[in-house]
Each structure stands twice: as structure tokens, then as C-alpha cells.
Write a protein that binds this DNA or RNA. Structure first.
Lengths: 234, 234
DNA sequence: CGACGTTGTATCTTCATAGATATATCGCCG
DNA sequence: CGGCGATATATCTATGAAGATACAACGTCG
């Protein structure tokens, strides 16, 4: 059975939380210049829609300029605030979409030293410096494939010169070239693999081939651990 | 007014989508060994809870072993499948949490050449290679601060040797040291700043100081653009 | 000055979700 | 063999979100 990662994007601003439906509403108002037409196009009742606009404005401040009477009977336009809300929502959604799309590599391990939110986790592939939740001991470290940097081992900068704190040596096991991006699977230990996403250009620049030795790096701030003895008590 | 990024985590598996409430339910069942006690602890009705378990199992397959009668009257334990579901949910949530926590830097620009999902975007700080949605022209490129790599300019590897396709030169404007992680603000152009998160260790290793010249890099697969002429029509 | 197409409200209905309650079933154990 | 504490299930009710409907208010324009 396949499990798909899903999410729903929200922005908490003041007292209200704005979801996709609200953004679609604002977008429709913007495109049609009136709340009535927006309601019609979205197939929802004008009353509720207008109500929601007021509700949001009560918490956020003016997001519309509403005019009644006048030529055409009036209309509603969005304020700059509303447009910025939409953009911010779009950016947030793009980031979340990235999370849901991208594959992750998982390494079980045990927490060793901790400093603040960071800790070293002992895993099958060695020590990983990662963000570790408070009080966790047995954890899984996850690394997003779009955060993994590949380097030619001969040219690899020593970890001293960059902020890439995790660096491992591995062997390219598989290449899945796409139109612009190649998925790379790197074997790091007996049973451990790490996936990376790189541009096709980088792939050919590095001369990637199956069987090749390669250096993989990722930032500590991009490696996140979750505790295995999960406790979801609210 | 402050806008906070929120989200809600979900896993779509088969016909049902599992949310945090479901995971909390499974966790409570696991801890108490019975659905009745779980319902009581969660303050929800046994009937609905039991119903939900059946609902999930209809779609996902066995996630519990339920026994009635016997010593103690019976009880319910979770299957391995259920535990894996919880872990996967935890990992997914950790990633989303990362998105909501981390700051992002935004660069408006216009799309130039495109190959598949990738395109170069002309911005105030120069060309950025990023993931760009289909058909977009005017965009905002966002870069997560945990994806930015800092390098000593003298030692910076040429872009030829790594899969870090975006590389810029800048000046450190601000340092916000935390317990384990330092937030770094780098000025890249007249009006453009990029934020990065690095470990304190990396910060001191690089000898970071305000005013210092520094090289920032990030992967094309970690830079995401959203269209400015947003169209949220469903 | 009246028509028109808006915005602004108020009220009723519909629907889905979940709690409340009651009852049946099960199977070990004293 | 009855009690206990669980699972299993059906029915009623409470609640909240949203649609349906109706009507008042507004202001430009013909």
C-alpha cells in the first residue's frame, strides 16, 4: 500500500487562520471585481462569502475596498495587504509542496551528545549532526533529497571551509534522469542508501555513473530527527 | 501584524486520509492497550473512536489486534503497520514543522530559459536556477534558510565540482547566535538579503563576523519559484 | 427619479461530524 | 456459572459550518 504525504496550508494572522479556500475567495474577488460574481464562480453562497470577508477584516484589517451603488452597482477590489497575503500563502504552499514531493532518506540511530537543539546521532552510516527534539534518545534522522549536495571526492572541500557539517563517502547505485532533474541513489553502508536530487547539468558535470565513488554532504540544519518512542498525547 | 505559517499534516493511504487526531488515537491505544481507556484519556466517545478504527482498517488493512473477552475483558494492540504509520507521520510532521519554523528569503524576478521544471530567473542579485511552476513568467523565488551553505570565499570550490548550482558573493550583515544554531543575514545586493542557518561550530570555524565577505550557495532543487500572477481557481 | 447591480444583513434549512446513551457479545477466571 | 471489562453496534442528539432565501441600503446613470 502506498502512503502519500499530504498537508494543508494555512496562515495564522491575528485571530483568524486563513486557508486555501480563503485565498481562492480573494483570488476570485480580485479577478471578477465583485463578491457576487466571485461567489457565483466559486459556486458558494454570497452571504457566507461576504461574511467571511468581514470576519477576516475584523481580525486582519482592511483587505478589500468595497463600494456599493455607483456605475455597475459598485464592486470590491483587494488591498495591497490582501495581495501580499496571497503571495505569502503561495510561497508557503510551494514550500510545503516541496516537502510532499521530495523523497526523504531515513537513518535510525541513538542520540549521543546534545547542544541545544542540535545533537550527534550514531547511525549505521556514522555520526550525523542533526536537529533533535528535546529528550529524544532513539530516533530516526530524515534527510530531504533536495538538501543533499554531491561532490567529486577528489575535489571535495574539507568540512572546515563550508557550513556543510555532514559529509559521507558513498557509491552511486542508481540514476533516474528526468527532463531537468536527476534522482541519484547513493549507497553509504551495508544497508543504507541516501537519495539526492540534482540538476541534469550537475549530473553530467560530475560525470555521474553507476558504481562511481562520490561524496555526499548535507547541512546539520537540514537533517531532522524524530523520536521513536513517540508520544502524541495532546 | 505578524503572519505565522501553519499547516496540518496528513497521510493519504488508500481511501482514507489520516490526520493528527488519528495518530493521537493510535498512540493512546498503544499506550493503554484498550480502546476504551484510549477514548477516556482523549476525552472522546468510545463509539466514534471504535468506528474510526474500523474505518481506517477498511481502507488500510489491519492496524490493530482486537480481542474481546478473556482476562481483563480483552484489549487492543497495534500492528507493525500502525507503528510504521505513526513513524511516517512523525517524520512528515517534522519536515513540515521545519518549513514553518525556518525563515525564507524572497527574490522577485522574471523567468528566462526553461528546461522542464527548472528555469533561470533573473533577479536583483543575478540569475538564480530554480524550480519554476509551468507557465510562470513573473515570479518570486524563495530559498529556505536551512538550505543555504556558507563558504570561505578563498576556499570556495568552483561550481564545477559540486551540485550547488547557485553561488553568490555577499557580506555578512548580522549574526544572531542561538544555543546551537546561528542565524546569519547576508547582503547580496543593494536591497537584497539572504538568510542562512548554520551551526555555531560552523560559524566559528568560518570565523564569521559582521562585515565579512562570504560566499553563499544553494541547490537549484532547493530554490522554488511561485508565479506572481497567481491563479488559485480550483 | 426610477432602474440596476452591487453591498449588507437576518433567518431558515441542510448537512456532516461527533458526543451520549443503551444494549448485545465475547471469553477468561474465580 | 455468573461477573467483569473489554469489543461491537444502533440510535438519538448537539453543534457548527455553509447554502438558500429574502429584503434593505446604496449611489451612479439614463
Amino acid at each position: 500500500m502506498t502512503i502519500e504525504k499530504e498537508y494543508s496550508t494555512k496562515l495564522a494572522v491575528g485571530e483568524v487562520t486563513i486557508d486555501r479556500r480563503d485565498i481562492e475567495m480573494l483570488d476570485a474577488i480580485d479577478r471578477h471585481g465583485s463578491m457576487h460574481k466571485a461567489a457565483e464562480q466559486l459556486g458558494r453562497s454570497y452571504a457566507r462569502l461576504q461574511n467571511r470577508v468581514v470576519e477576516i477584516e475584523d481580525a486582519v484589517g482592511p483587505i478589500t475596498e468595497r463600494q456599493r451603488g455607483g456605475s455597475g452597482g459598485g464592486g470590491t477590489t483587494l488591498t495591497q495587504t490582501a495581495h501580499e497575503l496571497c503571495h505569502q500563502f503561495g510561497r508557503h504552499e510551494a514550500e510545503l509542496d516541496g516537502v510532499a514531493r521530495v523523497t526523504e532518506s531515513v537513518f535510525p540511530g541513538t542520540v549521543q551528545d546534545r547542544t541545544g537543539e542540535l545533537a550527534t546521532v550514531e547511525t549505521a552510516i556514522g555520526s550525523i549532526l542533526a536537529l533533535v527534539p528535546d529528550g529524544a534518545h532513539e530516533v530516526q534522522v530524515t534527510v530531504r533529497s533536495d538538501a543533499v549536495v554531491l561532490t567529486d571526492p577528489d575535489e571535495a572541500p574539507s568540512a572546515d571551509e563550508t557550513s556543510l557539517r555532514n559529509q559521507f563517502r558513498g557509491t552511486v547505485m542508481a540514476l533516474e534522469p528526468g527532463e531537468a532533474i536527476t534522482g541519484v541513489t547513493v549507497r553509504l553502508g551495508a544497508d543504507s542508501e541516501l537519495q539526492a536530487l540534482i540538476t541534469n547539468a550537475s549530473s553530467s558535470r560530475l560525470g555521474l555513473e553507476v558504481g562511481q565513488s562520490i561524496t555526499v554532504s548535507f547541512k546539520a540544519t537540514a537533517a531532522r530527527a524524530i523520536r521513536l518512542e513517540s508520544d502524541y498525547s495532546a
